[in-house]
Design a protein around this nucleic acid. Sequence first.
DNA 1: AAAAATACGTCAGTAATGTTGACATATATG
DNA 2: CATATATGTCAACATTACTGACGTATTTTT
Lengths: 180, 180
Amino acid sequence: MPPQPPAPAFATDRNSGLPPVKPPPPQPTEAQLRQAIALLFFAYRDFTAGADEMLAEYGFGRAHHRVIYFVGANPGITVSELLAILKITKQSLSRVLSQLLNEGFVEQETDAKDRRRRRLTLTGKAARLERLLTGLQSRRIAAAYAAAGPDSIAGFRGILRNIINEEDRVRVADGAPVQD
Amino acid sequence: MPPQPPAPAFATDRNSGLPPVKPPPPQPTEAQLRQAIALLFFAYRDFTAGADEMLAEYGFGRAHHRVIYFVGANPGITVSELLAILKITKQSLSRVLSQLLNEGFVEQETDAKDRRRRRLTLTGKAARLERLLTGLQSRRIAAAYAAAGPDSIAGFRGILRNIINEEDRVRVADGAPVQD
DNA sequence: AAAAATACGTCAGTAATGTTGACATATATG
DNA sequence: CATATATGTCAACATTACTGACGTATTTTT
């Protein structure tokens, strides 16, 4: 590449022939970034606490919740896909999934086209539990949306979406859950 | 209380003597709230993954990270205050804190005014590790801020702040870390 | 048809992080 | 002096994660 003269750090209307531009957003300060880190920690801590209590009444933990949530949101999801979402080992998933199968919260059905795959669905009682848990967390989110105001929602979603690894952003697209 | 006639679900300019109002924001749909739940799960999963890898090289886990982070952000913090932030038992904290003390990452000093309290600070090597970890997470946040655009930041912060239990919102105030 | 890859399951061992309960010490406060 | 608070510690246990090794069924590739 031919060497380029260094661009001025800050183009002004005076030295630029281009149409006027808004000044670029200042870089976030270290303090602002630290605040964001703390926000994520506290928000996740409190976001999960209520559901954890409810799960304990069923003898379940957070790992069971994740399975119930994602099977509920993606009926017919396969084991592999669940592993890709949770990013845990199959041995770790096996423990909670076997428990949920044995206790009648999840059902398996062999896929018709590829008989190696097991399609997972929630039973009725699991769907009821899922609604309880999701309702609890939804109310917290809805209250935060209402308190912060409607203009905040797009920003909240946009930034969380960009925190997520690029390859998984499709899983939180506005459309819907991911199937396969 | 005297009985009140039921308010119309939606006051219009026609039936209201009050000044015209913007229609209230529509309630978020169930799908939108589910999306937010998934966003929090995936964002937290990816937000913590990089630091976890780095910590493993030191033989530390996420619990050590939390201690290092909050002691770094609040030098001189006491054990009680750390427990209030982390919301774990003192026995759980003891394990990781003792390890950090033994390995020379955290130092204790008896508070001069109340000699029951231990003031915690990071040593130099812990401060360096803290900067590595916080830098990693800060870069992820900063990239998400940049990608989503500056208008998103206030909404992101406002909603996370409102997800946090009311009594702990002061801990993420714009000002600074919480001392005591 | 044989070989390789994929999907799933399981056994065994280990580690990190959390819990309850009980008890001890030092210090501060009424 | 009695009581409350801040901290630490011992013991037992639960949950959730990991690595490594194998095994079986099924599909895909050669």
